[in-house]
Simulated scan of single mutants.
Amino acid sequence: MTPKAAPDSLDRRPLHERIAADLREQIMSGDIEPGGDLPSTEQLKARFGASGATVQKALGLLKDEGLAVGRAGASVKVRAHRRQTMHPAKYSAPAAPGETYRWISEAANRGQAGKSKLLDVAEVAPPVDVCAALGLTEGEHALLRKQILFLDEEPCELVKSYYPLELARGTAMMHKKRIQGGTPALLAEAGYPPRRTIDRVSACIPTQEQYEVLELPTDLPILRTLRVVLSVEDRVIEVTEMAKAGHLYELQYEY
């Protein structure tokens, strides 16, 4: 049992957020299984030294996040849908000629419906970390292709991919149209297959755009992946920023 916080606790969050955080961890770790009951209001009041209203406010956060379901006066249960494990290595390789985009085919392998929605294609000045990865000076432009990836009609990931203009110009990448097999397949066909990938993963508070596009219920952290893709002779052919809801998805890498 988690001890209740002392009055001079270093955790400055409101008590209902602290209660939700501890329960969220029990849900994510599997200590409370899908379909199982969360502790009762009386148990939570005693455990955290909280009022009934504070406990209900904490449970309301978990319901908003899609982790729990129930109504006032009844037991609150953990929803069957829990954090999904994603395997980046399975969908980062280019699709073979004629095959569908890896995101969609890998979703189908898991029994899910995957799709993508292209939001924008434009020549832009990338963020500083993207510029550094692409070898650009501040103010230089790259091609941005921005899309949302969906699983079972729910927004899963906001993807911003940046490409050197000398590789993109004169290709289908410059147009606001989806590409058969995705841009990795097009680059591979042009003689720039991915040879090495470097991922930097961090947890961040969502931006306004991420919050709205991913339809986040609260300001829980997102997982931000900055991916650098290198081709032959270690030439950088793509730098992508990906954002996922941290409470719904985790990443698994195998070595």
Rank of each mutant, 00 (worst) to 15 (best):
M1E: 14
P3M: 08
S9L: 04
L10F: 10
R12W: 11
L15I: 14
L15C: 03
R18N: 09
A20I: 06
A20L: 05
A20V: 11
E25Q: 15
G30Y: 11
D31S: 13
L38V: 11
A46V: 12
A46L: 12
F48D: 03
F48W: 15
G49P: 02
G49F: 07
A50D: 02
G52R: 15
T54C: 01
V55E: 06
Q56M: 12
K57R: 15
K57W: 01
A58R: 03
L59E: 02
L61K: 12
L61S: 08
L62M: 10
L62V: 12
K63R: 15
D64R: 15
D64F: 02
A68P: 10
G70Q: 07
G70E: 07
R71V: 13
R71F: 10
A72Y: 12
G73C: 08
G73D: 06
S75D: 10
R79Y: 00
A80S: 12
A89Y: 09
Y91S: 00
S92L: 14
A95W: 05
A96Q: 06
P97G: 02
T100M: 13
R102I: 00
R102G: 02
W103Y: 14
W103T: 02
S105E: 14
A108C: 01
R110N: 11
G111F: 05
G111S: 05
A113Y: 11
A113G: 04
G114Y: 09
K117T: 04
K117S: 07
D120L: 13
A122N: 11
P127D: 07
V128G: 03
V128P: 03
V130W: 09
C131G: 14
A132I: 08
A133M: 11
A133Y: 02
L134A: 04
G135N: 05
G135V: 07
G139S: 05
L144Q: 04
Q147M: 11
L149D: 06
F150L: 10
E153G: 00
E154Q: 15
E154W: 07
E154N: 11
E157W: 02
E157I: 12
E157A: 04
S161V: 01
Y163K: 05
P164A: 10
E166I: 00
A168R: 06
A168M: 09
A172V: 11
M174G: 01
H175E: 13
R178M: 11
Q180M: 09
G181M: 07
T183A: 14
E189Y: 00
A190L: 15
G191H: 08
P193G: 03
R195S: 01
R195N: 08
R196K: 15
D199F: 13
R200T: 15
V201S: 08
S202P: 01
S202M: 10
I205L: 09
P206V: 03
T207I: 00
V213P: 00
L214Y: 02
L214K: 03
E215A: 15
L216M: 15
D219S: 09
L223W: 05
S231F: 09
E233V: 06
V236F: 07
I237H: 02
A245Y: 05
A245K: 11
A245Q: 11
G246T: 06
H247T: 14
L248N: 01
L248I: 04
E250Y: 00
E250H: 08
L251I: 02
L251V: 03
L251W: 08
E254S: 14
